[in-house]
């Protein structure tokens, strides 16, 4: 059984994420308890809002260790938007705030010749042999992004004022800068493929 636990990061649009899973036939639960995060077949860290606020929520609920371990062990984990940025060591948005540091890099604001935030649909080019992604259009809502693919991760790329990292995969971990829950039928297929990995590990 694939129980999916959504970690409420305080500001995220949990309702949209939960609705997307319900359309796939799964009723997700919400939890900030580290034992439940450890045990769940699949964990989703959605994210909208500021890096500092989301990281504060992770730390105040003492989830830093549980989330870091899950991701490092490659267990089914989906992190979305600011959730993906939390994997990094830091963000230009919130100087001095430590991210999870799973990725040893810093997210930076888009170059100013583009309209910021990036709001809308953009092309995603998946990595070779992607387990989760196909080429297609995804919905983005972000002002900050990761520029370089980190070592050890397969990276999808998208162009907006230059190329940036629009998704990362490693084992059963999928990090999306875009919102799969808002990316129509294409996004539903991404969620479906990720959900399939939660069954394998349960």
């Amino acid at each position: 059984m694939s129980d999916i636990v959504i970690v409420p990061t305080g500001t995220a649009n949990i309702a949209s994420v939960a609705a997307a899973f319900r359309r796939l036939g799964v009723e997700p639960t919400e939890s900030t308890r580290s034992d439940e995060i450890e045990r769940a077949a699949g964990v989703v860290v959605p994210g909208v809002g500021a890096f500092a606020a989301a990281m504060d929520r992770v730390d105040s609920t003492r989830l830093r260790v549980a989330l870091t371990e899950r991701i490092n062990e490659g267990r089914a984990t989906l992190v979305v938007c600011v959730g993906m940025q939390l994997l990094c060591a830091a963000s230009e948005e919130s100087p001095g705030i430590a991210g999870l540091g799973v990725i040893d890099d810093r997210v930076e604001r888009f170059d100013s010749e583009e309209r910021v935030p990036q709001l809308g649909w953009n092309r995603v080019e998946p990595p070779r042999n992607s387990r989760f992604l196909e080429p297609g259009w995804a919905y983005f809502a972000n002002s900050y992004r990761l520029r370089q693919a980190p070592d050890g991760w397969a990276a999808a790329t998208t162009g907006y004022g230059g190329e940036f990292v629009s998704a990362l995969e490693r084992d059963d971990v999928l990090a999306c800068q875009f919102h799969p829950e808002l990316s129509g039928a294409w996004g539903a297929r991404v969620l479906g493929r990720w959900m399939a990995t939660t069954k394998e590990t349960a």
Binding site: A15, S16, A19, H179, S183
Partner: peptide, 9 residues
């Protein structure tokens, strides 16, 4: 509307 909508609202 959210229940059926898989695009931004």
């Amino acid at each position: 509307v959210r229940a059926t909508l898989s695009i931004p609202l």
